[in-house]
Design a protein around this nucleic acid. Structure first.
Length: 429
RNA sequence: GGGAGUGUAGCGAAGUCUGGCUAAACGCGACGGACUGUAACUCCGUUCCUUCGGGUUCGUAGGUUCGAAUCCUACCGCUCCCA
């Protein structure tokens, strides 16, 4: 069951990850493959609910978990709970604790997204509050604390780097909690593998060690980490204009999501195709050749955008994003009908606007397109602003919302490819 | 508890000794423009707000001075060393 692509290249789970550049370290490669062959086992990824939605950074371990699932394994995901309330230490500074209300909201949002990605069949989403929440301090100290050596804990990279700047006792304890999670899932859900980013290595091995200590050295428990994702210029992957790309369509529209992938550079497409799609090595090799020979066609980028958008938002969203992209990047937007605008542009950031003429600069700021008048003036002067397809360069221009699209919409473009849809409200009092 | 440092725009980092020429160097990031393939590279411009007169900034609050990021006092945060 650990084998994929039986009709084409034969690769097992690990070989496939290696080929995709998605493998950093494994605790015991041969042991893991053997365990996978001996019957279905589970693997888990933990997520702390630091926001009400997942973003692309989270998708990285989830992609590997999904491959594990596709290879016949059982996917288990921990969404926050106690570990989320504590905070995984960052290498630099102490985290700000989230309120319990915020945590609860975040957990709900993230659980829904995870369910969408993994399906409900056989996938298990758990909250570690189930076991960590019941644990009393005396039990914690007697049953677990005794098994952890401070000397070893201090050597973990994250802790070591924090010794210079300071780390609270709370965050220091995090690795123990995560180790307990692994142990509990090992017992409850037959989880034998924990998957995480390369920064999770220390936490993961803490869990493997704990299982070996309690369940015996022969106990089958493995850890696997994924390399840090960077783009070809060495920057951390997953940001657009300095903002995170969210999986929640309300926070990042499927159109924006699609465009994020579509705009990847030639140097990165193949890497991302391997990483973020479930296309076979043959298909990816073909696309790689296409990118090398006819980069201008952007076939690789297009396929990447389609595949990832489909995985996260579904086929309908792909079609909408492509329609919208076609409308925005090919023809003249002033030719579009009111209906087309309403249908197709739903995915673009929108704002409400009063039904009365307004100076262009004030209009831009009121719409939230720029954050200050200074910036708005600069953009207008630079010829960066188009209203309903017409470039505006005069700072004194008045924008009349009634002028186009039956007075219902005002379509604004800033720069080469950022669109905003103004929805005209009633007349101002 | 004692001692030594440190806190500057989104980030990093000058400027502080020798107060005015500093809305504050430089780098990164970000935004816009040119080029292009909705790419990368490169180049150019912008990057506190503004009714374009000016206004408000350099941890916080006071003080000295004609004038303070720069000097003084107190307080707050962070780091290190000693106890």
């Amino acid at each position: 069951m650990a084998f994929l692509y039986k009709k084409e290249k034969i690769m097992n789970f690990i070989e496939d990850l290696k080929w995709r550049g998605a493998l950093n370290q494994v605790t015991d490669e041969a042991g893991l493959l053997e365990a996978m062959d001996n019957g279905q086992i589970g693997a888990y990824v933990g997520t702390d609910p630091t926001a009400d939605s997942l973003h692309l950074g989270h998708l990285i371990p989830f992609m590997v978990l999904k491959r594990f699932q596709n290879a016949g394994g059982k996917a288990v995901i921990i969404v926050g709970g106690v570990t989320g309330a504590i905070g995984d230490p960052r290498p630099t500074t102490e985290r700000q604790l989230l309120s319990t209300g915020q945590l609860a909201t975040n957990e709900v949002g993230i659980s829904q997204q995870v369910t969408k990605l993994f399906g409900s069949d056989g996938t298990k989403i758990v909250n570690n509050n189930e076991w960590l929440g019941q644990l009393t301090l005396p039990e914690f100290l007697r049953d677990y604390g005794k098994l952890f050596s401070i000397n070893v804990m201090l050597k973990k990279d994250v802790v070591a780097s924090r010794l210079a700047t300071g780390i609270s006792y709370t965050e220091f304890t995090y690795q123990i909690l995560q180790a307990i999670d692994f142990l509990q899932l090992w017992r409850r859900e037959n989880v034998r593998l924990q998957i995480g980013g390369s920064d999770q290595w220390g936490n993961i091995t803490a869990g493997v060690d704990l299982i070996h200590t309690i369940e015996g050295n022969g106990a089958s428990a493995f850890g696997l980490t994924i390399p840090l994702m960077t783009d070809s210029t060495g920057k951390k992957f997953g940001k657009s204009e300095g903002n995170a790309i969210w999986l929640d369509p309300k926070k990042t529209s499927p159109y924006t999501f699609y465009q994020f992938w579509f705009n990847q550079s030639d140097a990165d497409v193949v890497k991302y195709l391997k990483y973020f799609t479930f296309l076979s090595p043959e298909e990816i090799d073909d696309l790689a050749q296409e990118v090398a020979e006819n980069p201008g066609n952007r076939l690789g980028q297009r396929r990447l955008a389609q595949e990832v958008t489909r995985f996260v938002h579904g086929q309908a969203a792909v079609e909408e994003a492509e329609q919208l992209s076609a409308a925005l990047f090919s023809g003249d937007v002033s030719e579009l009908t009111t209906e087309q605008i309403g249908d197709v542009f739903a995915g673009v950031p929108s704002f409400d606007i009063m039904n009365e003429p307004q100076n262009i600069v004030d209009f831009i700021v009121a719409a939230g397109i720029d954050k200050s008048k200074r910036q708005a003036r600069e953009d207008v002067s630079n010829g960066a602003i188009h209203v309903n397809g017409i470039k505006i360069t005069d700072l004194e221009t008045m924008v009349d919302p009634r002028a186009n699209y039956d007075g219902k919409y005002v379509l604004v473009r800033r720069g080469k490819k950022k669109y905003f849809l103004g929805k005209v409200q009633g007349t101002a009092l």
